[in-house]
Design a binder for these strands. Sequence first.
DNA 1: CTCGTAGTACGGTGACCCTCGTACTATCCG
DNA 2: CGGATAGTACGAGGGTCACCGTACTACGAG
Lengths: 117, 117
Amino acid sequence: MRSLPHPDVQEIALDQVLSALADPIRRVIVSQLAGGHDDQACIAFDLPVTKSTSTHHFRVLREAGIISQRYRGTAILNCLRDEELAERFPGLLDAVLAAEGSEVQGTTATAAAARRL
Amino acid sequence: MRSLPHPDVQEIALDQVLSALADPIRRVIVSQLAGGHDDQACIAFDLPVTKSTSTHHFRVLREAGIISQRYRGTAILNCLRDEELAERFPGLLDAVLAAEGSEVQGTTATAAAARRL
DNA sequence: CTCGTAGTACGGTGACCCTCGTACTATCCG
DNA sequence: CGGATAGTACGAGGGTCACCGTACTACGAG
């Protein structure tokens, strides 16, 4: 079985977390994971990029400590490390998710950000 | 009098806010502004970069909607737009500031948590 | 008016990041 | 075994960013 390196809770760096969440595609992934559907394979995400770019984004999220990944067959199950993240940086993930959710609703800035891809 | 463009509250984009806060130098600026000392000139910040780079960082923060700047003589007064930011993205700035504060203690945040707070 | 201070504009450099295509590995199914 | 599926490795290209030095502008003090 292949294994994937994950940072320890204490090793999670604010720098990496914020950089990871600064990318719209990665926020889509995180939002979808937070939206009740944990344990999704990478293929389950409808991302506007190719497979290799998806791999890249998932790795960035994993190395930042935001998600955990484990193999099941050829697929990978992705989980949000929400509890550990809340322990390390309380309220941060919730605030970003809420912000992401509220921004998707209304204003013009989101549309521009989405089309930019 | 020169004037500086600031985004409206509704125009503040999560993308720009997170990107701006992803840089350690800019988080130092924000933390210092949040630490009671509002209305500081750019020169008051002891940043490990040259003047031109400082200008760059302050502009990024202003264009992201995180700080406001207004002239007073040759100097610029910098203010955190904390209330507007809390209105747009509730809890986000607080979470980042708290995370920044806790992380400064060192990568093993457990032992040193009680020192400064 | 002249000087000093605070900050900006501009150009350049090196690094990093997002993106992709192609080739590859690992696992499951028939 | 052979094929299909899920994801990785690798390298390249294009864009953006942080950083700097130098030259410049705006304002206040003397």
